[in-house]
Deep mutational scan, measured.
Amino acid sequence: SKDTIRINGIDIDVKDLHEEWKRLVEEALKRGDEELAIELLERALKE
C-alpha cells in the first residue's frame, strides 16, 4: 500500500491511516467517487 493517495490531483499523506480506511478510500477512488473518498478521509483523520 502506498503512503499517499491522489484525490483531485492532490497527493494526501495517508501513511498514518489505518489500513482499513486506506482500502475504503482506494475503493471509492476506483469507482470514481472522489466525494466519498474525501468524506472517508476526513472521517479517518478524525479518529
Rank of each mutant, 00 (worst) to 15 (best):
S1W: 12
S1K: 10
K2H: 13
K2W: 14
K2F: 14
K2D: 12
K2C: 05
D3I: 05
D3V: 06
D3K: 03
D3W: 00
D3H: 06
T4H: 07
T4F: 10
I5E: 02
R6V: 13
I7H: 03
I7A: 02
I7V: 12
N8L: 04
N8C: 08
N8R: 05
G9N: 05
G9S: 03
G9I: 02
G9W: 03
G9C: 04
G9Y: 03
G9L: 03
I10R: 09
I10L: 10
I10N: 08
D11M: 07
D11F: 05
D11E: 12
D11R: 03
I12K: 03
I12L: 07
I12D: 00
I12P: 00
I12G: 01
D13S: 13
D13G: 05
D13H: 08
V14G: 03
V14D: 01
V14A: 04
V14S: 03
V14E: 02
V14H: 02
V14I: 15
K15P: 04
D16E: 11
D16L: 11
D16I: 07
D16N: 14
D16S: 11
L17F: 06
L17Q: 01
L17R: 01
H18K: 13
H18Y: 06
H18C: 09
H18G: 15
E19N: 09
E19Y: 12
E20Q: 11
E20K: 13
W21T: 14
W21I: 12
K22H: 06
K22W: 10
K22E: 02
K22N: 03
R23Q: 11
L24K: 11
L24H: 04
L24I: 07
V25E: 00
V25H: 00
E26H: 15
E26A: 11
E26F: 15
E26Q: 15
E27L: 09
E27S: 07
E27G: 06
E27Y: 05
E27Q: 10
E27A: 11
A28I: 04
A28S: 03
A28H: 03
A28K: 00
A28V: 04
A28C: 04
A28G: 00
L29T: 03
L29W: 05
L29C: 05
K30Y: 12
K30P: 00
K30I: 12
K30D: 13
K30C: 04
R31Q: 13
R31C: 07
G32N: 07
G32K: 05
G32A: 04
G32C: 03
G32Y: 04
D33F: 07
D33Y: 06
D33M: 08
E34N: 12
E35V: 14
E35W: 09
E35C: 14
E35G: 13
E35D: 12
E35K: 15
E35P: 11
E35T: 14
E35S: 13
L36W: 09
L36E: 09
L36R: 08
L36T: 08
L36N: 05
L36P: 00
L36C: 10
L36S: 07
L36G: 10
A37L: 06
A37H: 00
A37T: 02
I38N: 06
I38L: 15
I38V: 10
I38Q: 11
E39K: 14
E39A: 14
E39F: 10
E39Q: 14
E39C: 12
L40G: 00
L40K: 00
L40C: 03
L40Q: 01
L41G: 01
L41V: 08
E42I: 07
E42F: 05
R43F: 13
R43H: 13
R43N: 10
R43Y: 10
R43Q: 15
R43P: 01
A44P: 02
A44G: 15
A44D: 01
A44Y: 13
L45Y: 13
L45N: 12
K46Q: 14
K46R: 13
K46N: 11
K46H: 10
K46P: 03
E47D: 10
E47L: 08
E47W: 05
E47I: 08
E47Y: 07
E47Q: 12
